[in-house]
Computed example of a mutant assay.
Amino acid sequence: MARSRKSQISLDATSYYHCISRCVRRAFLCGFDPFTQISYEHRRQWVEDRLLWLGEIFAIDICAYAVMTNHVHVVLHINPRQSEQWSVKDVILRWHRLYKGVPLSHRYLNGDCFSPAEEAALATLVEQWRETLTSISRFMAVLNEGIARRANREDQCTGRFWEGRFKSQALLDEKALMACMAYVDLNPIRAKIAETPDTSDHTSIQKRIKSIQENGRQPRELRPFVGHYQQDMPEGLPFPLKDYLELVDWTGRAMREDKPGFIAAEQPSILERIHLSDRQWHRLTRHFEKQFKCFAGQQSSFENIKNCFKLHRMPPNLLAG
């Protein structure tokens, strides 16, 4: 039996999730359609721009993304601590970037005086909005709805654009998180539409590389790499950026089996730290989406958090350990 989206997300278990949305039509979401001889390549930028824009509004960090010809991958991190720090005005301004709001919220921004009952009603409304702005379901709905409406206008048609709701996978541990991010970043290389990570257009790995080359720092739109977990460290991805870039480059070279490019004999040191062999790593980064269903990680990781999802049986295909 299919599980509801709400039952697949638990902050007590993990704050990292892999989401996939697929286009339902024969016509491409992006790219060139040989049947109609029409190019939809410009829609890739639509998706990337809207995705990064939503990352500025929601208390949700974007860890990785790839905009493909008929589907979109994104790895998200729910950040409730960020939303807790927002003032009432912050929440209202963010909400108004998405929706029109209500008379009470506009009056608040105008500095009007409120009665006690109005203040209570506004406080309740703001807390609802604060919670919604940490929702992956709402994040993906706003992303997909905006692209669908714009594509429908361009195609001069109506009807469903996406293949039902998005698919979600909970990333239960560091191994699952890193393998999933690399899987997403390397989608264009695996599909043989890009040669290297830095030429993989409309991916997070390309954005990270360009930002480092041009500005010498990580892009502000993406959740940063902060290195190994330790006390008093800033929030971010628990790997060094240099190690991750090296790992993605090494993996990408191995995926290009039709090319004679050199593949380093020694595996990157980051794999040794998380206790994965190169064979395990390549299997994960080639087949991550098929390898796991709703949950991705080690069996031991799932045992620690299975009560959060109200599950009693072990999901299939979890990693041993």
Rank of each mutant, 00 (worst) to 15 (best):
V226Y: 02
G159A: 01
E221C: 10
F139I: 06
D201T: 07
R253T: 11
C23M: 06
A121I: 02
N79S: 09
Y99Q: 10
L177D: 05
N152E: 02
G227V: 09
L143W: 06
D61Y: 09
S7E: 08
V24N: 10
Y244T: 07
Y229A: 13
M68D: 01
D173H: 11
S39R: 01
N215E: 08
L237P: 03
R150I: 05
P116E: 14
Q280Y: 07
Y183K: 01
D198H: 14
P80D: 02
S137C: 12
A117D: 06
L186C: 04
H287K: 13
Q218E: 13
P80M: 01
C23Y: 09
A64M: 08
V126H: 08
A64Q: 10
S87R: 03
G261K: 05
T124C: 13
A123R: 15
M178L: 15
F302C: 12
A179T: 10
A254S: 12
L11S: 08
H73D: 04
V248W: 00
T124V: 08
E235N: 13
F139P: 04
L76C: 04
H282W: 14
P315K: 08
R43K: 05
A182R: 06
H77E: 10
P219I: 00
F35K: 14
F58T: 06
V142T: 03
V47G: 04
Q37R: 14
P197N: 02
N304S: 14
P103A: 12
D232N: 14
F161M: 09
E119Y: 04
E41W: 05
D201R: 11
T199R: 15
R81D: 11
T134A: 04
A182P: 07
R253H: 15
K192D: 13
G236I: 03
M181C: 12
R150Q: 15
K175R: 15
L51G: 03
P316E: 14
I270F: 08
F161L: 11
V248G: 08
E48K: 10
S301Q: 02
